[in-house]
Design a binder for these strands. Structure first.
Lengths: 340, 340
DNA sequence: ACTTATCCGTTAAGCGCTTAATTACCCTAC
DNA sequence: GTAGGGTAATTAAGCGCTTAACGGATAAGT
């Protein structure tokens, strides 16, 4: 308890008059010590305030008791999106109480991200990792396979044998489109994130499919990079172009809010002349006027599920593909009938 | 390079035909091996893709090569504020390239936070920690001292011998007040965060002092908890009370945006009938209409400076108190002359 | 009464790395 | 020719913990 001096199992052994082996067995609840002895040892252990040295434990059992997450988004963007903090909240929730810690790294390029995973693996610092924002032919998939590093993807099951936690975005896209069509919209544009992301493609495909089914020839997809600047630029172009859409669906909240500004600037009233839907609900969506209709996804749930799955996989469980609860559209004040 | 098999120094030793001791000396650039041998060893090491095992290294040199950060804010709030992600960005920037990793924990109560620090210390998982959101008589200060755990405070230097990185908030508060007074405001209310935080008190004190100096008897401070709900409640009360203020200064961005909604609801035009200033600039402030005037603080710089300071302290440097560059007021469209 | 099984506990090796102590060898100096 | 001084290596102990392998004692089986 007193500063600087951390008790070790041999301190406990000495105090209990047994060998360190016995202490180890007792502390780990494994057979080999009698009940009274075990109890005595445990009492001494927590009287001394003993906590196992993670380094020593790792070294001998090969477990790091840590998992890693690297987020590869430019600093400019990362601060803005509530997504990651909510994800981390969920992750922590599932980690709480257990012996496992979270190692976090924020990088601004893909090479650094790969290097981080490789280093963590080499240093035996993590038992497994979480993979977010998968892209087509993602090099990380190759890497974790090569390294035999347990990994769980946060996203659609595109890689057959890689465990993942996913949310049914296609469903949500379809729901949004049907909702807008029900309001009377026909010209709808989806302002998506970068093409490279798998989830972007999934949503775009769902969008196109649903649009075809609903017979909306003017529906189309344009891309931005999640930043408000890019979104403003794209939105302005779309709204001032030929046949302007009456509804826009965005791939995050920041872009939708940015569009709100652009609409204002162009003198377009939201929702009377233009409807807006954001992806990933957030305080941002709630606070802005008019409040934004948004698709709410269970982000923290994703994080928690991913952690549980990863811990299982680390313990040798087969690679499952887990689906979270479905997203839901939260209608607010940014959607209405299109102008007559 | 091939999966699963991580080379150790004894693999290198075998390949080079020397002892593991020699390998260790060579790899750590310490005297004891000849230049040719060193070169040969290093070549083999990186041909084999060797990376030191952090567990083994920690165990033998007592260094964890990691620092810890625990953020104690309810999940509800944490996702909203860009602050932490920006801080983490800054932290990573200073960590990049070095051997040190960041351990992150998000908790929702102070006891859990203390437990986290204690556990990290016991497990020898971190070499030092970062402390944010200091409160009066913060138990963490006592704890890190008792444990002799190197720590750096992100905030004002309230504890004499604890190193810290701080930003001159008093200056900013004064600047904001002078700015508003110059515009003609006399009745100004500061909507602050919880009283318990040291930074809240610092700012409030500066506010009161400056208000007295500027002869503003109606200036006062009210408190909320950083959430949009609380801010809305408080703002509504303040604006509908006796002598309503003509300007409000908030302690974060979310509360300011929330107030924007309240003003709208009460039929108060911003900035013509009410001026609003946010603390900590963010995309939120930029994107909202009218865009919010805000105090911009060098958040990432704080994080980076704190990391550098912490690493120094871990290496035995004396506890410095570092001041960052000054905050600046970014005037936008939410501030103007008060109504005549 | 003797083997067998069971239970409790100790021993010791090993995880991968660092580092003080030691040895081996070659040079220079008196 | 031998003591003294580097330099370049090896040896081995130790960091704190886990865990096979082993041993001694007691209880049970025939």
């Amino acid at each position: 308890m007193v500063g600087g001096k951390r008790p070790t199992i041999s301190d406990i052994a000495k105090a209990a008059g047994v060998s360190t082996g016995a202490v180890s067995y007792a502390l780990n609840n494994r057979p080999g010590v009698s009940e009274p002895t075990r109890r005595r040892i445990m009492d001494i252990a927590d009287r001394l305030g003993w906590v196992p040295s993670s380094a020593a434990r790792s070294l001998s059992d090969g477990r790091a008791n840590a998992i890693g997450l690297v987020v590869d988004r430019p600093a400019r963007v990362i601060g803005v999106e509530p997504y990651f903090m909510q994800l981390i909240s969920g992750i922590q929730g599932a980690l709480a109480g257990g012996p496992t810690s979270l190692l976090l790294q924020v990088t601004d390029n893909s090479a650094a991200e790969l290097a981080a995973y490789r280093r963590w693996w080499g240093e035996r610092r993590v038992d497994g990792v979480l993979l977010v924002d998968l892209v087509q032919n993602d090099p990380r998939v190759e890497l974790v396979r090569e390294l035999r590093l347990p990994a769980v993807v946060l996203g659609e099951p595109v890689v057959p044998d890689l465990p993942c936690v996913w949310t049914d975005d296609e469903l949500a896209v379809t729901e949004v489109l049907e909702y807008l069509v029900a309001l009377g919209h026909r010209r709808i544009v989806r302002v998506a994130g970068p093409t490279k992301f798998v989830h972007t493609q999934t949503r775009s495909r769902a969008f196109t499919t649903a649009a075809a089914r609903l017979n909306l020839p003017d529906a189309r997809v344009v891309h931005a990079d999640y930043s408000d600047e890019a979104a403003a630029r794209v939105t302005r172009r779309v709204l001032t172009g030929g046949t302007a859409p009456t509804a826009l669906v965005f791939d995050n909240d920041v872009m939708a809010v940015s569009a709100l500004g652009v609409a204002h600037e162009l003198g377009l009233a939201v929702p009377d002349q233009l409807s807006l839907v954001a992806w990933d609900d957030s305080a941002l969506c709630r606070l802005v006027r008019p409040a934004l209709s948004a698709v709410r996804r269970p982000i923290a749930e994703r994080g928690a599920a991913a952690v549980r799955l990863l811990l299982d996989v680390i313990n040798g469980a087969p690679p499952e593909q887990v689906k979270t609860s479905d997203p839901e559209l939260v209608p607010r004040s940014s959607t209405a009938h299109p102008p007559a």
